[in-house]
Amino acid sequence: MTDLSLAKPDYRCGFVAIVGRPNVGKSTLMNHLIGQKISITSKKAQTTRHKVNGIYTDDEAQLVFVDTPGFQTHHRNALNDRLNQNVTEAVAGVDVVVMVVEALRFADADREVLQQLPKRVPVVLVVNKIDKDKAKDAVVLQHFIEGVQQEYGFAAVEVVSAKHGLRIANLIHLLKPMLPEGIPLYPEDMVTDKSSRFLAMEIVREKLFRYLGEELPYAMNVEVEQFEEEEGLYRIYIAVLVDKDSQKGILIGKGGDKLKKISTEARLDMEALFGTKVFLKVWVKVKSGWADDIRFLRELGL
């Protein structure tokens, strides 16, 4: 292993914010950039609710990626207002911004994200989902990129497929020279600054988005009520918060089947991530109006 305390004089280290409208693949991109799943992914938009730092380190640079919530322009409530504030806060003080857009799709929601970006920080345009059939046409894709470049003074452009991990190394190579020179901030084997407690919560939330309907997960949140580390075993107790009693029944499912499936898959993911056996208990609590309760959102860290 490289001893980063003896990093070269021209070693680079800095923060890179990953931004974009909901559902453009930011979290999937983050996971591929650091080579490990730490940020939740789903086909549903707006799954990311917290800023998640992922850390990539080699013998030339350390890139600290900040995965942000998708900037929300619809369904305004205290929760979404707070998520949008998280985006604004995340890009303040970073060294580079990666603006992710979907290949062949650029809309007003993307333009609203551009308006939130700091003016004196380089912004790299990353065109994702190039694996889609229409995006495979090089001429069509190039025409699309040229159109987006007219919207903003991007420092550089890269095309990737976050889903398939294509051209991820190219993006890292592109970003390195944009970082300031400096020593690493984190140990070389560290891939996130988030706690095991936080990651457990995010894994359960991902399963909720994967296995419930289009609307229900947005009326839910997750909180870890107890997290105990024993020799060879983690004991984790997680509550899922819903707005109404009727939502509780939908989540639990007939005979408890749905909640059991969510819990089992979450436990298996946790065991793979933590490298230890996990006892996981998940249950449902009704807390009406939690998404509009500013004080409660702060208690959840949102």
Rank of each mutant, 00 (worst) to 15 (best):
A291R: 11
K207R: 15
K43Y: 07
G182M: 11
S42N: 04
A272F: 04
E89C: 07
L104E: 09
Q142F: 07
P180E: 11
R295P: 00
E271F: 06
I38D: 00
W283V: 13
L83S: 03
R49E: 09
L175K: 01
G70S: 13
I145P: 00
V94M: 04
E158L: 07
E271K: 09
Q226V: 06
Q36D: 07
Q62F: 12
D131F: 02
G301R: 10
E146I: 02
P177R: 04
I55F: 08
G165A: 04
E230T: 03
A138Y: 09
V204G: 03
T276P: 03
K176S: 07
F154V: 05
N23Q: 08
V64I: 15
P9Y: 06
L29R: 05
V64K: 03
G20K: 00
D293C: 06
Q36S: 12
V66G: 03
A266I: 01
E158W: 01
D67C: 13
R295E: 12
R12N: 04
K258F: 05
G54K: 03
L297E: 09
D59M: 13
G289D: 08
T192G: 00
H32K: 14
L117S: 03
R120G: 04
A169W: 05
I238E: 07
A78N: 13
G70P: 09
K136Y: 08
L280T: 06
L171W: 03
K134G: 09
A17I: 02
K163S: 11
L208A: 08
A92V: 08
K207C: 09
K281H: 14
R210H: 15
D269Y: 05
F227L: 05
G256M: 09
S27G: 13
F296V: 10
E223T: 15
G256I: 11
S5D: 14
V16H: 01
K134W: 11
K244T: 12
R298F: 10
M30A: 08
E229F: 00
R49G: 06
A156H: 03
E271D: 05
V91N: 00
D10K: 06
P187T: 10
A7C: 15
